[in-house]
Every structure is written in C-alpha cells, then in structure tokens.
Amino acid sequence: MAAASAPSVDTPRISTLILQRKTLAIGLAIIVAITLLAVLAPLIAPYSPSKLSIVNRLKPPSSTWFFGTDEFGRDVFSRTIYAGQLSLLVGAAATALAATVGITLGLVAGFFRKADGIVSRIIDAMMAFPDILLAIALVAALGPSLATVIIALGVVYAPRLARVVRASTLVIRELPYVEAARALGVPTWRIMTRHVLRNLVSPILVQATFIFAYAMLAEAGLSFLGVGVSPEIPTWGTMIAAGRQYVGQADWMTIFPGFAIILTVLSLQLVGDGLRDLLDPRLRKDL
C-alpha cells in the first residue's frame, strides 16, 4: 500500500489476465498445440496418411509407428494429426455458421416483437430434437459431403446462440442508454450493432467456444455413424468407425483418435469456462 511506486492506472495486460486463470491458460495451450499439430501435419507426420503398407498392418505402437498402424498398414499418428485438420475445420466452420445465423435470428427476435413469436417458436422446435438426430436428418436431406456436414451442424447449433442473443437483447433493448440513443436519432440497425451486439460479445464468445466443442463431437459422431464425410477422408470420427472392427486386436486404432477428440473438447470447454470467468466482471478478482 505504501507509495513506493507510482500508482499504476494501466489496465492489466490481456496476457497477464489469461495467465492468472489456470483453466483458461491450460485450455488455450492445449488447443493451440492441437491446432499447430494439425496445421503443420505435412511437416510433422512421419508418413503420408494414405500410404498403404499391407506388410505392416495392425502393428502396435512403437518407435517406428508412434500410434501403431491400421488395417491397411497406414500410420495412425500421421492419420490422427491429418484428421485434426478436418475435424477442426468442421468445428470452426460450423461454429462460424451457427454464430452468423444465431446472432442474426437472436437480434431480430429480441428487437422486433412481431418477428419474435415466429423466430422463437422455430428455435424451440429445433431445440426439441436431439442434436445428432437433427444433423443426421439434415445431412440425409442434403446428401453427405463435407459442406453439408458443416451446414447441418451450423443449423443445428444456431438456436443455442440465437437464444442467448435474444435473451440478452431483450434486456439491453430496455436500458436507458439505448432509449437515450434513440432519442438522439440513432437508427435501429446502428443501435442493434453498436449498442446491443457490442454488449453481447462476451456471452457470444463463451457460447461459441462450447458450440465449437459440440460441433466437433457431433462431426465425429456423424462420421462414426457413416453419415458424415466419406470414410476415405481421415477424420477422428471415421478413424474410430474403421477401428471399431479391430478393437479386440488393435485398440490403438480407436484409442488415439478418441483421445484426440477428448483432449480437444476438454480444452475447448476449459477455454469456454475460463472466458466466462474472465469476461464476467462480477467474477473478476483483479478489480
């Protein structure tokens, strides 16, 4: 408390704030590592993910094949990190789509009374279906491909964001400063983006992190069930699906991609939790 140093009025640096929160720091570290592995897969992978070697089929993990080999003698480690590319891409793209659709619907529903009834009922109806079931139905309707998986997951998770955005919009819309902005002639779209959306950045960010995790999990589920991307393309889901038949002889074929899913989803959940704490001023301890 003594005035040894001049009182610092600077706000703490973002890096300090993140490092102060263990869960957030650990989650971010893992997700960054996984992303790097996936992105740099061509440089890191010891073998091509599709190189067949019938001689070396179903070999257990060793120094030659870190994660063993599969039924065609392909290196499971190389395939796992390559599969990360696709799994992360699907997760990110589905989240981006869900965010775009969800935020738009949520803002419209929160802002316009007449639209609210319709939009909210649609959201309720969509949320009544289990995620995977709705995604399967959508993929079946659109025909399986990478794009349709992304679209299906984006559509399935959009209502979650729409609900969060709508609820917060209803509150913020009535705040005195929004009314004051109206009284000074600020047009509605500008109030929506500048005054309302800006206030929603933290709940949206937190929710989007969770949706990222759900979408990755759902993609793996779809691929496992054979309704996702084509089985030749390595994703964690297709790898587990392929390994299922050999789970007695070569459990490494399922364990490692399964572990990759667990680690990614866990790290995203940690990030989501950490962000929620960081962005909620009531839970901040440094002030």
Binding site: L175, P176, Y177, E179, A180, A183, L184, H195, R198, N199
Partner: peptide
C-alpha cells in the same frame, strides 16, 4: 433532443 432522468445509465458504458 432529449435528456433523461438517469445520467448514470444514459451513456453506453462500452
């Protein structure tokens, strides 16, 4: 133009 009763909440905090 209009000004309101609540100066504490009539400005956007962000």
């Amino acid at each position: 133009a209009m000004i309101f009763q609540e100066p504490m909440t009539s400005l956007n905090p962000l």
